[in-house]
């Protein structure tokens, strides 16, 4: 189906980390909207730049970059080692930065471009034991704000989708944990989000109607962050 301004026909897109449900949903939605999509699955953060460069060359150009990495770690702050911190920062934050660095030379060949990153409600709120994960997600939030200022003069918009409790997040909303199921009930809508809840927003953020929308964080969280 094609809806005006939700149409990506002829656009070339890279979606990073389609091994995650959010990345797969974004790639599916881009394809449904008519984009030519290159999917990059599980990849070491240090190889992201090479993979993105390779994918952009294969596509013959690039208009849209979407990133959806997500590595959750939660432990008491005194238990955290460099072995925890490195991957959490590299996957959640640095891999998105590396992807942008590699994608920009290709995106800059066009008059405008769209970048869609992924973050979490933990990027603006905290929970016990989520210190490094929350910090990494907060890093993504302000990466978006800073790069929006830097890239706006070139016609490149950058925004992020901020996930709440999603139905595949068994590593943080364990169904056997009573407190975790209470957390889901903290959403106004009383349910975890689904992959399909992400796609249309990603398409809007990747399309030609968001030239005046940049530097913003868009929660898909069932109302989790907006009530007491």
């Amino acid at each position: 189906m094609s809806v005006e301004h939700f149409d990506l026909t002829g656009q070339r897109a890279i979606v990073l980390r389609t091994d995650n449900p959010a990345g797969a949903a974004i790639a599916d939605a881009f394809e449904e909207a008519g984009a030519l999509v290159s999917r990059i699955g599980a990849v070491e953060a240090n190889n992201v730049a090479d993979e993105v460069t390779h994918a952009a060359k294969q596509l013959g150009g690039l208009n849209i970059l979407a990133c959806a990495p997500d590595l959750f770690v939660a432990k008491p702050v005194t238990d955290i080692t460099g072995g925890d911190l490195g991957p959490v920062m590299m996957v959640n934050f640095a891999s998105q930065l590396f992807a942008i660095q590699a994608a920009l030379p290709f995106i800059r060949e066009h008059e405008r471009g769209n970048i869609v990153l992924l973050t979490s409600v933990l990027g603006e709120r905290g929970l016990p034991n989520t210190s490094i994960y929350s910090a990494a997600q907060g890093a993504v939030v302000n990466l978006v704000r800073a790069l929006a200022q830097e890239l706006a003069p070139e016609g490149i918009s950058i925004n992020a989708i901020e996930l709440g409790w999603m139905d595949w997040m068994d590593d943080r909303i364990d169904k056997t944990d009573e407190q975790a199921s209470r957390a889901v009930r903290f959403t106004m809508l009383k349910r975890p989000g689904k992959a399909e809840d992400i796609g249309p927003l990603a398409v809007w953020l990747a399309g030609d109607a968001v030239g005046f929308v940049t530097g913003q964080i868009f929660p898909v969280d069932g109302g989790l962050t907006q009530h007491l």
Binding site: A148, P200, L201, F212, G222, G223
Partner: peptide, 26 residues
């Protein structure tokens, strides 16, 4: 404003409530 209004009015945003969508050029 049109495409954003359509999105928020439609079932495409059915998990989104209580939110503010800023459209301000950064």
């Amino acid at each position: 404003l049109g495409p954003l209004a359509v999105y928020l009015a439609s079932d495409a945003s059915s998990y989104i409530t209580g939110q503010s969508f800023i459209i301000d050029g950064g």
